[in-house]
Nucleic acid binder design. Sequence first.
DNA 1: GTATCTGCAAACCCTTTGCAATAAG
DNA 2: CTTATTGCAAAGGGTTTGCAGATAC
Lengths: 155, 155
Amino acid sequence: MTARKGKNPSELEIFRDFLKHQGMRYTPERETIIREIFSTHEHFDVDSLYLSIRQKGHRISKASIYRLIPLLIQANLIEEVFFEKGQMHYEHIYGHEHHCHLRCKQCSKIEEFSDHRVAQIEQDLEKRFGYKVLRHRLDVIGLCKSCQKKAAESS
Amino acid sequence: MTARKGKNPSELEIFRDFLKHQGMRYTPERETIIREIFSTHEHFDVDSLYLSIRQKGHRISKASIYRLIPLLIQANLIEEVFFEKGQMHYEHIYGHEHHCHLRCKQCSKIEEFSDHRVAQIEQDLEKRFGYKVLRHRLDVIGLCKSCQKKAAESS
DNA sequence: GTATCTGCAAACCCTTTGCAATAAG
DNA sequence: CTTATTGCAAAGGGTTTGCAGATAC
């Protein structure tokens, strides 16, 4: 991202600025939720986030979490990653290396990779469609080595 | 589109075989739904699919659509593409040219594109990780021209 | 004939929202 | 002080499910 000199601002600093710019307020509840979200590198859903916050003794309502999430997305701190079993799952996009996923259709094993050609594609898209590209998600689905072997044996 | 009486679209043949193999039944309701899904190249969601089926005079319940979709996914005919405004959106992955999506974060407008470099990336992944690649999904998120303009005006 | 499928409507459950009390700025 | 924010509980809305009748095989 934009690290000119020195260290990058923390998620909390970025979000505080975002709120001030919007005429919104920086509350203890919001700080607690953000701290919990950024305390791990995992993706999360509202329910598990709510439970882990409660387990640490904080009394935050789910409504506050639901109301905070759109703001965090607007501030480019998190994004929706996938929807599963009736729930949306989110992950941080700030402060973590971007990567693409190579996923085995059979056993769901995931390899992570990066490829500079995706950035080239993005540049071409900006020219061709006039979009300002913010980010991408590339998921490649296939069969891993051992699942190929199993498939060959069973046929 | 009108019903094609003489020709059997291959989606239907594939799905009929799939059902037989699972001990399930090929019903007129299922055929009607599949014909409607494959009559266009668009993405669809359950509600709009339901409406277009009803508008053509067929009396199919939403429940039947909801119950059919997991089967079509299992048969590799369609897949989930994205979740938006509370609804899942699907698209065919069989019998139609593959394409990637360039989506506006603000207004959700979608441009479709293809790029041969994705196929090159896939080939490299097969070599590097030993996977057999089946397909991919590349979603690029950005701001379309008019949403960039709006953002500039309001700041 | 029998097990699957259908339509209907109610249940489900994640998410959103109205409201009165609270607190940030 | 003023107005955004909170927690609660109720409402919303897409999706799932139980059931009795219909139907593919």
